[in-house]
Write a protein that binds this DNA or RNA. Structure first.
Length: 822
RNA sequence: GCCGGAGUGGCGGAAUUGGUAGACGCGCUGGACUCAAAAUCCAGUGAGGCUGAAACCUCGUGCCGGUUCGAGUCCGGCCUUCGGUACCA
């Protein structure tokens, strides 16, 4: 009989739902296991293959843990604010709230159809005031500590749509994706969260978590810690000093000029009037370059002199001050000491503008007189460096640092690439920023008791003239809570990464009203034990969440230092080598496969395709193999209906009491149970499925000569191991065998019979001079003496060894015996 | 450029600490069942050589070299590809 998935799947889904089989008892954290997959972004109503690949296998892992006896908490929610819903509104006129809620409704149905075991009591969404109120509360706490602050920052401004664009809305040629207008850089006051205060801890914490090494590397690079020195250069004729940061103070004697970033405020101070016109022209030019143009590959260096001079504090030398955009305003001090002899960028710049190049570091084994054809950027021996000449770089760095500190002209310093987190969005569909601007009192945070600042529904989200909230007068106009006078609300909303920075804390009690989250439950359940999501979040979401967690810990409301203990990345499923996306039109729709094979088979096929962390290119070739396997399992169960009752299995079997077929099969079952547990635990679903296929092959060839109660034993184990991978099918088979309870309703564990895992005979490979020449079946742990007797008596081996001198014998017990002859 | 992953049959992919390369599945070939087909089951399937057949031999994990009794696995140098990053002083 064909496996009737169309009847079986809804039947068990209803059963699970009616009996609340997957409701977690959160009061019991004894064997707690919080497993989470990154919540879903409801930008469309359909789940594509990528979603399935993310949620299906992860759910199988959670189910596996539940069967192992863990109290598993697996919730799901919706990352419901964000740009796509707003863009959709602009295009179609459908309000973001309406389209989002519709999508959520559809998605919820589909997630249930997948057969996931989410605890729907814990569902949450970010676009409702009950949730985003706490974003605002979080903002206020950060504000109080000075960790939420305002500063000018450049944004992408679309002059046609009169709106701010996200980086991904700007095409590589610098035009807007929507309007086609040339995008400009505009400085606007923006809110930031001061993540840089946590830079060091974010770096150090990486050592304590079980994350993919590649992701830790990405975060380390992103934080970009750099140890060096800050040095003060006097400006000739001015009281101001130029502060530079360098990692190579040992090259200080090689400085031949100093460069300021165009945005550095000192530029205006140092500029010599005679150079003013050229400077202004240059600054203007730089301003209109997009980020992409400014950082374009292989772009030639540009810059202008200021006519001013700086004084090298170590030797009193006067060197010219230049302005050039290869120096970044946002890193270090926004100015550098240029050492063209030992820095590639400075070398290139000096060569172009005919600035002197001086050699102060000597490459080991080279003559001081040898000319520099390019910058020598490695360490070496210091030369032409006054009292430091002759020192190795490593020692010289320390000595120079000591000298600078003693003289008060510099000090050791640490810099990070990590920048503060810009959270302002000049957009509608997000959390309103809880700040007002009073005519008299100035900038004021909204009092906590007045939260939430509700996002108004009735707005005009058509583009043009700033963000929708800025145009909505009855939202903007408000009364100052301090003086009762006229005030205006902040028209911006928050980055949606704020929403996702703490949602895992709220899941245990999503309706909680007395605070951001239920502290006592969160203490018990957080950190998330296993967190699954795409590697594309390595430096954004996953870093922001760590930061906010640490901040909440410092507030005293979150426990522990890290939010996510173990992290797994699912790979990406591509189509014809490209990422699936609506715009490319290469989305694979799972529906046709679900209709044809059922959800379990589709889920299992996704797991069988290859290593979960690698993903791969989509192909439906091979899904029939998984279908056949499911069918065989089903047929087995149906052919042995009621066996659990009629021929109850023993807990274990003595190997001696079994015939050859039974022994082989009994061993195979135990081996498979053991193997699958290990494989699933480590998200290696493909090999787990393969192991089960092997088991069913073995059943096929031995069952006819196996006694009935052992058949029951084998079938029960098969179904049990299959249950996480194909939950509906397994429940149905379990039922058919005569079991009265659902597998998931009353989880129980089987343990492996260790005795059955012991192998008594092995295939020993016999090599001559490293080449495989023969294979022998021998008893396990056979002593070397007996082994040699067998080996050298073998006629085949004799043919290779006779008449030759045996130089060496290598014996790896139970694996290999290698004879070296001459 | 730098950082990280990947490269194994016709295809997806397996291979503890270096120890039988190709598990499992797809596809293909042949057979059984059938009036026939589908479904299912059985057998074979890296390439080449030799043979009536088996046994056997040679080659084979992106390329070149090395270490080792033995390398898909370790080391050095490349190539291709996918991701991240972009003048970070």
């Amino acid at each position: 009989m064909r496996y009737p998935f169309n009847d079986v799947e809804p039947k068990w889904q209803k059963f699970w739902e009616d009996k609340e089989v997957f409701k977690t008892d959160l009061s019991d954290s004894e064997k707690k296991l919080y497993t989470l997959v990154m919540f879903i972004y409801p930008s469309g109503a359909k789940l594509h293959v990528g979603h399935w690949y993310n949620y299906g296998p992860t759910d199988s892992w959670a189910r596996f843990k539940k069967l192992q006896g863990f109290n598993v908490f697996e919730p799901m929610g919706y990352d419901a604010f964000g740009l796509p819903a707003e863009n959709y509104a602009i295009k179609t006129g459908v309000h973001p709230y309406d389209s989002t809620m519709n999508n959520i409704r559809d998605i919820r149905v589909m997630l249930k159809k997948m057969g996931t075991m989410y605890d729907w009591n814990a569902e949450l969404m970010t676009c409702v005031p009950e949730y985003y109120k706490w974003n605002q509360w979080l903002f206020l706490q950060l504000y109080k500590k000075g960790l939420a602050f305002k500063k000018n920052a450049p944004v992408n401004w679309d002059p046609v749509d009169q709106t701010v664009l996200a980086n991904e809305q700007v095409l590589p040629d610098g035009t807007a994706e929507r309007s086609g207008a040339k995008v400009e850089k505009r400085d606007m006051l923006q809110w930031f969260f001061k993540i840089t205060d946590y830079a060091e801890e974010l770096l150090a914490g990486l050592e304590t978590i079980d994350w993919p090494e590649a992701t830790k590397v990405k975060q380390r690079n992103w934080i970009g810690k750099s140890t060096g020195t800050e040095i003060f250069f006097d400006i000739d004729g001015l009281d101001d000093k130029i502060k530079v940061f360098t990692t190579r103070p040992d090259t200080l004697f090689g400085v031949t000029y100093v460069v300021l970033a165009p945005e550095n405020p000192l530029v205006e101070k140092v500029i010599n009037p005679e150079y003013r016109a050229r400077l202004d022209e240059y600054l203007n030019q730089v301003k209109f370059l997009t980020d992409i143009e400014r950082t374009a590959l292989g772009r030639e260096k540009t810059g202008v002199p200021t006519g001013a001079f700086a004084i090298n504090p170590v030797n009193g030398e006067k060197v010219p001050i230049w302005v050039a955009d290869y120096v970044l305003a946002g890193y270090g001090t926004g100015s550098v000491m240029a050492v063209p002899g030992h820095d590639e960028r400075d070398f290139e710049f000096a060569a172009k503008f005919n600035l002197p190049i001086r050699k102060v570091i000597l490459e080991k084994g080279k003559e001081p007189a040898s000319p520099l054809a390019e910058a020598f950027t490695e360490e070496g021996t210091m030369i032409n460096s006054g009292q430091f000449t002759g020192l190795d770089s490593e020692e010289g760095i320390e000595k120079i640092n000591d000298f600078l500190e003693a003289e008060g002209i510099g000090h050791r310093a640490i810099n990070y690439k990590l920048k503060d987190w810009l959270i302002s969005r000049q957009r509608y569909w997000g959390t309103p920023i809880p700040v007002i601007y009073c005519e008299k009192c100035g900038e004021l945070p909204v009092p906590e008791e007045s939260l939430p600042v509700v996002l108004p529904y009735d707005v005009d989200f058509k583009p043009g003239g700033g963000s929708p909230l800025a145009r909505k007068q009855d939202f903007i106009e408000t009364v100052c809570h301090k003086c009762g006078g006229k005030a205006e609300r902040d028209p911006d909303t928050m980055d949606t990464f704020v929403d996702s920075s703490w949602y895992y804390l709220r899941y245990p009690d999503p309706k909680f009203t007395d605070g951001m989250f239920n502290k006592s439950l969160a203490e018990k359940w957080v950190p998330v034990d296993t967190y699954v999501g795409g590697a594309e979040h390595a430096t954004m979401h996953l870093l922001y969440a760590r930061f906010i967690h640490k901040f909440l810990r410092d507030l005293g409301i979150a426990a522990g230092d890290e939010p996510f203990k173990r992290l797994i990345h699912q790979g990406t499923i591509t189509k014809d080598g490209a990422k699936m996306s609506k715009s490319k039109g290469n989305i694979v729709n799972p529906d046709e496969f679900i209709e044809k094979y059922g959800t379990d088979v589709f889920r299992m096929y996704l797991m069988f395709m290859g290593p979960y962390e690698l993903g791969g290119d989509w192909s439906d070739k091979g899904i029939v193999g998984v279908e056949r396997f499911a069918q065989r399992a089903y047929t087995f169960a149906m052919e042995h209906e009621g066996y659990s009752l009629k021929f109850p299995a023993y807990k274990y079997y003595e190997l001696e009491s079994l015939n050859e077929s039974e022994k082989t099969l009994y061993r195979k079952v135990n081996f498979t149970l053991n193997k699958c547990a290990q494989e699933i635990d480590n998200f290696r679903f493909n090999t787990a499925v393969a192991a089960l296929m092997e088991l069913i092959n073995e059943m096929q060839s031995t069952f006819s000569s196996v006694r009935d109660d052992l058949k029951t034993f084998v079938l029960e184990k098969l179904v049990y191991t299959l249950a996480p991978l194909a939950p509906h099918l397994a429940e149905e088979c379990w039922n058919s065998l005569g079991n009265r309870y659902s597998i998931y309703e009353k989880p129980f564990t089987f343990s492996v019979d260790e005795k059955a895992l012991v192998i008594d005979e092995v295939t020993l490979v016999i090599q001559v001079n490293g080449k495989v020449r023969h294979k022998l079946q021998v008893a396990v742990d056979l002593d070397e003496k007996s082994l040699k007797e067998i080996v050298y008596a073998d006629s085949k081996i004799k043919g290779y060894v006779d008449g030759k001198q045996i130089v060496k014998e290598i014996h790896v017990p139970n694996k290999i015996f290698n004879i070296i002859v001459r």
